[in-house]
Amino acid sequence: MTHATATMTAPSAVPTAKTRYKSPTVRGRLPVLILFLPPALLLFTLFVILPMGEAAWYSLYRWNGYGSPEHFIGLRNFQVLFNNAAFSTALINNGLIILASLLLQIPLAIWLATMLAHKIKGAVTFRLIFFLPYVLADVAAGLIWRFVYDGDYGLFAAIAGFFGVATPYVLADKNLAIYAVLAVIIWKYFGFHMMLFIAGLQAVDKNVLEAAEIDGARGWQKFRYVTLPLLGSTVRISVFFAIIGSLQLFDLIMPLTGGGPLNATQTMVTFLYTYGVMRMQVGLGSAVGVVLFVICVTLAFGYKRIFMRHD
């Protein structure tokens, strides 16, 4: 966006500056810019910039969504938010999800990818199987797993019944529920990361690996000192997707637990929905949106700046 505005304003700038930009390429590009920039700019402003600004504005009001916001309360919504135990749980859960993604999901994905990147028998089938959960709609996956975990009629009940032990109600246990959700998240998204790594691995130059072998590198050494560094940019992008995806997690959780029991599985977005939308506290909901936005933007730009500078 910053690019676009810069280019846009350039032609109308002071004459001296104008001469500087009067290169044939710019003159040739101008009609194209005038023709193609406004639609994108308009849509972006209308559907991204404007709603963001509105959310920031609403977050300063106590407003139930009817009419227009009139009751200005300053930063009160943010104060309420940070004193809310459920929101703290949501922040912690978002952190947990990021951790699980980084420490379990991505290593798992890399491990599977190293096995499936080679042309071994059945590799394509396995890739497909592992990728399948990702293709499922989040809500469908959530419903399936709700049934799997169900303590009365679900798969867990059947397994527990088979072994003759008491059925665990994992989704109803406030200490276990979040781990049950984490398991589903990992199951759902590892295939996506695996595909990224397979693509990355296929781009690794075979000659380098061969050279390492000739130099006497063994399996793990080859992976640690050759494959992994060459996979660096893929790992960085995969981590980036995992973090942003974790922060925005919503549609998998709603059918699974709806944020319960006792708010044990809230994330920031389910919190926003439960407390902002369902309770018609649009002001408070907007405040959550603002916090989420700030966290996402900080992480995204910070991460890009620090880790993805050279990619």
Binding site: D152, A166, T167, L171, A172, K174, G260
Partner: peptide, 15 residues
Amino acid sequence: QGGYLGANWSQTLGI
């Protein structure tokens, strides 16, 4: 009932 904290209203009526 077991798992009541996760049960929605239809499940409750079902039980």
